[in-house]
Design a protein around this nucleic acid. Structure first.
Lengths: 179, 179
DNA sequence: ATCTCATGTAACTATCATAGTTACATGAGA
DNA sequence: TCTCATGTAACTATGATAGTTACATGAGAT
């Protein structure tokens, strides 16, 4: 089950495309999920979106969405409202949310760094390698965050806008989207 | 079981230190393992080292070592000889082996890149994010490899040499090594 | 009031990657 | 031919994360 309904913020592709519910979000990372959700929330603007709706769009489970958004809420990137008419809303304009902020909000240690087990062996070679790799990974992490800080959600949204325009122009051949 | 015997290439720390066999190499990555093995082989020079010996030093299993070294052999970084007096030997001087070469030899896709599942949903937002992240990860991968190419095994060995000297100077207080 | 919707969260299962293990075939000296 | 060591398949164990179920909590709608 992962089809769209005409009224929502998505481009209407109903009946044409669907994704296999159980094999989709298998090994793709927390960052990807969070960005996708945020992009949808940015599209929705002020109107709250339920985790159920988001889950349908992302072909995943509502609880998975809530888990991810819980972290983003603590970081002040989104807000949530319970009950009737409730749901999730983006807390800042998309241009004011950097991918670095999202990455940080996820506590995304380990997205790059493999994580290290403390060295109990006393092997000096191991120590040298541990330190070298620690330094190296820290350096890469810095580069990664710096680069992510330079990209905003609005940049992704712009890219999305470009795609939508392209899609509208080629609307005659929707089959090309299946490739 | 992970104690050293006095005659080998390791600094003799017998009886002083041991590591818990079952909880050591749990989440540390293929690169770390390969580098550690290579560093030991570099220390050993021309004399072949058995996977059993290496496993004892690294507190892991001989088959794990052989699995890792099989990849490195295909890349021409190490050689192996069967039978009596056999074992593993480093194929080039340590200065001529870059960490980038090791990384490549491991086919270490996924050390950084989370890997992506093909997008079947047709969601344009998803596509924009997929491409942005693909580009981003490719960029980081390039930076990572470039940086790794700039470090040789000999650099790590030099670091090891420095440590050994320090250790020898402070040999009176071996307890400090336990911290 | 209470009904319904939606979040918040705990607890469980499923899946995947990798480390660890066992077992055995193969090849090379002694 | 005996022993050592690699080469490899097949299995188990572990940990991370996605997916699922279930239920408590809170906030409007009636």
């Amino acid at each position: 089950m992962c089809s769209r309904s005409p009224g929502d913020a998505m481009i209407a592709l109903d009946g044409v495309l669907s994704c296999n519910y159980h094999s989709s979000m298998k090994r793709d990372g927390k960052l990807h999920l969070a960005l996708h959700v945020l992009a949808h929330l940015a599209e929705a603007g002020d109107r709250p979106t339920t985790s159920e709706d988001l889950a349908a769009h992302l072909c995943t489970n509502a609880v998975v969405i809530r888990r991810s958004l819980a972290g983003l809420r603590e970081a002040g990137l989104v807000t949530s409202v319970k009950g009737h008419g409730g749901g999730w809303t983006i807390a800042r304009p998309a241009a004011a949310i950097s991918l670095g902020a999202v990455y940080a909000a996820l506590g995304a240690r380990g997205e790059l760094t493999p994580g290290r087990v403390p060295d109990l062996s006393g092997c000096l070679i191991e120590r040298a390698i541990d330190e070298a790799l620690d330094d190296f990974y820290a350096e890469m992490e810095t580069l990664l965050v710096r680069r992510l800080d330079g990209i905003s959600l609005a940049d992704l949204a712009a890219d999305f806008g470009r795609r939508r325009a392209e899609w509208a122009a080629n609307a005659q051949t929707p089959a090309a989207l299946n490739g």
